[in-house]
Amino acid sequence: MAKYTVKRLLQSLLTVFIIVSIVFVLMRMLPTDYYFTEEQQMKYDEETKHDMLQAAGLLDPIPTQLFRFYRGLLRLDFGESRRIQTGVSVWSIVAGKFTISMRLGLIAMAISLAVGVILGVLQARQKDRLMDHVGTVYTVFVNSVPPLVSYSLVLAFGARILKLPSLYSNRNPGPSSILPIACLALTSIAHYALWTRRYMVDESTKDYIKLARIKGMSSQSIMVRHVLKNAFVPLAQYIPASLLLTLGGSLLVERFFSVPGMGTLMTDAINRYDTNVVQGCVFLYASLGIIGVFLGDILMMILDPRIKLAGGGETR
């Protein structure tokens, strides 16, 4: 177990390492002109620009730059922002964004877990009856209608009819978080409901359930003590990943409601060629994704003693 964990961790590190390297090289493939703002472009002559690039180490050969980047990476130091907030360290920018995304994400996740699992259970219990159909229509809707449309509907309904604020504000974080949370939860409720239903339906046809029925257990307690408990195990695998990904925020939701979180930070950083911030974000996203999957596997192992992940198992 310990050996397996260590091996998996090392593999994950390698993946993260490859990802940041690729993005680093890709960013360096952009013309160096991109490092200047429009104003700087106008104001500086070629010589000045050359000097500034040199001072920033951007004219060194890529391997040298990569090496310097790795040295920083070892200390988890991504340097300073150039454009988002001139001269401020990447970590402190990210940290500020992070808390906001996380708060919204965690609330949305708690809501969608609760609602999603309950919906899934109801659907499974009333399979092929009204509740099941309602749930199915909902999951189909969410899965197939583009989020741009469904968020617009939430926005129109929330802002026009319920008169909720459509813009996130720190002055009234409560009310102004309702719509973004609703949008975040909208999709993940469907996700949890779908899988809960599927696992429960699968589980309830198994022999031991039949046995329990024959023994005369009430269907209520069968559902809760056997079916749900077992169906929850595969579901649990995804919880750490979704949990960690909430830190990353949802780009579209954040853009829609002007939430100053990680999702918007990343697009801003790319749009302004703030390479250090982009690199920091990519590192964070990749690590969160990979650690999430890893924790999910471990969690599943803990929850279900039957599952043993072999030492040479897959990375996912």
Binding site: T15, L251, I270, A286, G289, I290
Partner: peptide
């Protein structure tokens, strides 16, 4: 598998922006 992990964990927006640029 490694390729999958790598590509799967690069945020799509970064990828699409870089392609566009």
């Amino acid at each position: 598998t490694e390729l999958y992990n790598v590509i799967n964990n690069i945020p799509t927006v970064i990828y699409m922006t870089l392609v566009a640029l």
